[in-house]
Every structure is written in structure tokens, then in C-alpha cells.
Design a protein around this nucleic acid. Structure first.
Lengths: 212, 212
DNA sequence: TAGATTGTTAATCGATTAACAATC
DNA sequence: TAGATTGTTAATCGATTAACAATC
């Protein structure tokens, strides 16, 4: 099993390759991916080598082959159905996020405890939490997104795992974890901003001390 | 200058410590942070040691001291004012995201090219992009969030850097980079989900092959 | 052929972990 | 004192990079 950073690089390669393909390119050199994917050419070749993807010396790699191989590794055969639990502002924004389609992701349903929010009209139904387990079983859902409040996050995770979810992207501002085999990816938006603030301050300081 | 993962750990420590403090705790042991922050106790002690934060053998660390030191390192003296460029669904959701306040972050304005979206009413004004440079100068803004479309992202970044922005959190699904000293943090939501999908598939496969 | 690019090995780099002496 | 916890060093681990032979 490969690591997170490696997989994120593969996803970037895939996006760039699809763009190049749509522009009519047939072949690509490691160097062409360097800028667009933000990696070194050593790393591109190493990554492909690890996946047993072979290019031609002097001829580069065939884009179609690369895309196919990457899709196999990334497990992107069929459309990936995903649910969202917590239909607040961020949850609703993600339900309508139109970049998912291009990546083979489809948000198929939302879930919420608030009866006011429920609806079966519209493209994506919003259902009560009680329906979660049934829906997941009926539709063979593996992955869900948590966009509930900090206080509800832990119990929401528990309910999702209980209902059979195997992978979770958590946007609630609290680090979730589990003893079960469920994969959890915590994204803390505030921390991402604070992280930037730190580096902005740090570079300012080094500049000032360089001047002095 | 410290690295990204280190800073993210410090941010997690800070959140946990503030919670403990609000519960009335005065002291904390490295072990208390292990579960909540998702790190090893070795790492907690190592991290504090690197920051020259000293505890008492057998007595642990004083929570107040830790919080203060962390705030110094993280550069969190005053409220951090942040702008958002791109007032679509995700941008608007972030403008109203109420967890920022607790972290000392305030979204002070939105910017958009669409005249329909502009408003000076409401808590947070939405202004035309032409006002960006002036606003940033007048209000001493350093950090901005990009929530425009993929196609507009690169030119939006350019405009922001031009206007004096020093740090950017980018949610547009394209990797932004710059020759300038501006810090850029790319968050690709689709990739985060695809990353989970990979690991869910991978663990399923290893389980099946274990059975066979 | 000459030159460009791959594929792979070894070197480097850095972060995490383990271990344990110091000491409260 | 005995026991628990820190602080730090050294060992480990793993990922990235550099270098270069192979070869198209």
C-alpha cells in the first residue's frame, strides 16, 4: 500500500495528463510534468517506475497508457458515489460542487438531523439520519463526507461507521479517529489558514533580520 | 523556519490545550496530548523541546505557559484578517464559517467579478475586484483565500499578489505556484476524496487476499 | 552517430521513534 | 525513597534527490 503523498502526486499527474490529452498531445516527457504537478523529474520517473509504467528512452511516455495505468492504481473504474452528512453551508456547497464530476465523484445524497432541511426533490435528496444505514446498504456506498459541527462530529462518525462507511473526509474542526478499519482524512480549514499565517510571519521576520 | 507538519501539530496542541484549560485543567502531561492530537509522546516532548518549552519532570507542563508559547511561535497576537476572492457557494460558506473566530481568524471582505454579487450591507462586504489593491493597503491584509473557478484561478492569484497579498489558501482545483515570495497552500477537495477512495480500495484488496 | 531521456541505484536528507539518564 | 515523567541523544525509518549507465 502506497502513501498519501504518493497518491496525491498520482492524482495531480492524472489531471495534467487528461488536460494534455484534451489538447491533442499523445506523448509526454517526465520534464513536462515537473511544473504542472510540482515535482522533480527524478520523482516523476521514480513514481512511474514504482508502478511498473515503462516509457521509451528518448520517446517519453504514452499519455493514454499513463492515464489507464493511473486509473487502475487509483481504483477509478466506475463512478464513485459519496454521501454527505451535515447539510449546513459547507455541506450544501460541496453537494453542488461541480468539479467532482470530472474526477468521477458523484454526491448521491445528503443527510441531516434537522427535519426542515429534508427534501426528496432536487437532484440530490436530503434524508434523515435514520435512513443512513439503509441507504448505504441499498446503494453500496463506501465513502462519506462529514460537514457537521464540532460537537456532533464524533457521534456522526460513529453512526457512519456503524452504517458501513469505510472512508471519511472530515471537515469538522476536530481530529476524528477510530479503532475500526475506516479510513479517516481530517481537513481543518482554520488550521490551513493559520499555517499560512505562520509562514507569512516567518518569512517577514527572516527578511527583516536579513536587512538588519 | 519550521515545517508544515510541525506547525499543524502545534495548532492541534493549541486547540486541545485551550479545551483542557476551559475544563479547568492547569497542568498537562505529554501523554494527555497523544490521543487528542494524534501524535506519539516522544514527538510531543521533542516538539516542545525544539521550542525550548520546558516542563517539570514528574509535574508535566503548565497549560497557560504552553498556550502562550504556542501563540508566540504561531504568530497569533492580534486577530488575523483574511479576505476571500470568489463568492460562489464555497466562498460564501467560508465567509460565514463560524469556527474561524475561535481561532483568531476574521474574514473581513469578499471580492467578486460578478456585479450581481456585490453588497456593502451585511456583516461582510462583497466588493469588486478593482477595489482589491486599495482594500488590502488600507486594511493591511496579508492573507487571502481563493474560491474562484479553475479557469480564473491563475489570474486571480496574480491579481492578489499584485495587490500585496503574502499568503494564499487555494481551493480552486488547480495547483497554483508563483515566482514571488507569496506562500501558497493548495487544497484540492476532489483529490482528498479520491485519496480516501484509493485507501478504501487498497484495504479491501489486502483483506480479500488475506482471506484467500 | 550524437544527443536526449529513461530507469535504477546509491547517497542524501530529514523526520520520527526508541531508549534511557536525569530528576522532581 | 520509589516511581513517574521529562529532555535529549542515538537509532531507525523512509522519502527524495542526484547521478549515471542504458538505450532509443
Amino acid at each position: 500500500m502506497l502513501n498519501r503523498e504518493f497518491i496525491l502526486r498520482l492524482l495531480r499527474y492524472k489531471d495534467v495528463l487528461n488536460k494534455l490529452k484534451s489538447l491533442g498531445f499523445v506523448k509526454v516527457f517526465a520534464d513536462n510534468l515537473v511544473d504542472a504537478a510540482g515535482v522533480s523529474s527524478s520523482q516523476v520517473r521514480k513514481d512511474f517506475s514504482l508502478l511498473r509504467i515503462m516509457g521509451n528512452k528518448r520517446g517519453g511516455y504514452r499519455i493514454d497508457d499513463l492515464i489507464e495505468e493511473l486509473n487502475v492504481v487509483l481504483g477509478k473504474k466506475e463512478l464513485n458515489k459519496v454521501i454527505i452528512v451535515g447539510c449546513g453551508k459547507i455541506g450544501m456547497a460541496l453537494m453542488k460542487y461541480n468539479y467532482f464530476e470530472k474526477e468521477g465523484i458523484k454526491i448521491v445524497a445528503g443527510f441531516d438531523v434537522d427535519p426542515e432541511k429534508l427534501t426528496k426533490e432536487g437532484e440530490i435528496p436530503i434524508l434523515p439520519l435514520e435512513n443512513l444505514k439503509g441507504y448505504i446498504k441499498d446503494n453500496n456506498i463506501k465513502v462519506g463526507i462529514i460537514t457537521v459541527s464540532e460537537t456532533a462530529a464524533a457521534q456522526t462518525l460513529e453512526a457512519m461507521i456503524n452504517a458501513g462507511i469505510k472512508g471519511v473526509l472530515n471537515f469538522a474542526p476536530i481530529r476524528l479517529k477510530t479503532e475500526s478499519s475506516c479510513i479517516i482524512n481530517n481537513v481543518n480549514i482554520a488550521h490551513e489558514i493559520e499555517n499560512i499565517i505562520y509562514f507569512v510571519n516567518a518569512t517577514e521576520k527572516t527578511k527583516k533580520s536579513a536587512k538588519a
